[in-house]
Measured scan of single mutants.
Amino acid sequence: KFNKERVIAIGEIMRLPNLNSLQVVAFINSLRDDPSQSANLLAEAKKLNDAQAP
């Protein structure tokens, strides 16, 4: 279950337009470290993406 959620979360994070490459890598590394947190990490990535919108 967590592996599928992690793959989906990674794909979504990679498509967030307002994150820089270091932020994307940090979120992906966090997902690798704890796949059970996929939903929480994706939500945090989306919040950061929205906050950094031009």
Rank of each mutant, 00 (worst) to 15 (best):
D34P: 02
D33P: 01
D33G: 07
F2C: 15
I28S: 03
P35H: 06
I28C: 09
E12C: 14
P17S: 07
A53E: 07
K4L: 03
A26V: 10
K4I: 04
P17G: 08
S38Y: 15
K46L: 07
L31K: 00
A45K: 00
D34L: 05
R6Q: 15
A45N: 00
A39P: 05
S30H: 08
A9Q: 03
V7C: 15
I10T: 04
D50N: 08
L48H: 02
L48V: 08
S36R: 08
K46W: 05
A9T: 11
N40C: 13
L48W: 05
N49E: 00
Q23S: 02
L42S: 03
K1W: 14
Q37I: 09
N40D: 09
Q52A: 04
D50T: 06
Q23F: 02
E5H: 06
N40R: 11
P35W: 13
P54G: 12
N18M: 03
A43T: 13
A53T: 08
I13P: 00
P35T: 07
A43Y: 12
K47V: 07
E44Y: 10
D33H: 08
A45P: 01
F27R: 00
V25H: 13
F2E: 15
L41W: 06
V7H: 11
N49T: 01
S30N: 07
M14Q: 06
I13E: 00
R6L: 15
F2I: 15
L16T: 01
V25R: 12
V25W: 13
V25M: 12
Q23D: 03
N3C: 15
S38W: 15
F2N: 15
K46C: 08
N29M: 10
D50Y: 07
A45I: 02
R6F: 15
N29V: 08
R6S: 15
D50S: 07
A39M: 14
K1N: 15
E44I: 11
V24L: 10
E5G: 06
N29E: 13
N40F: 12
A51K: 10
R6D: 15
N20R: 11
D34H: 14
S30C: 11
L19P: 00
P17Q: 08
E44S: 06
L48K: 03
A53D: 10
S30P: 01
I10A: 05
N40P: 06
N49Q: 01
Q37C: 08
V7P: 01
V24Y: 03
N20A: 07
F27G: 01
S21L: 13
L31T: 02
L16D: 00
S36P: 04
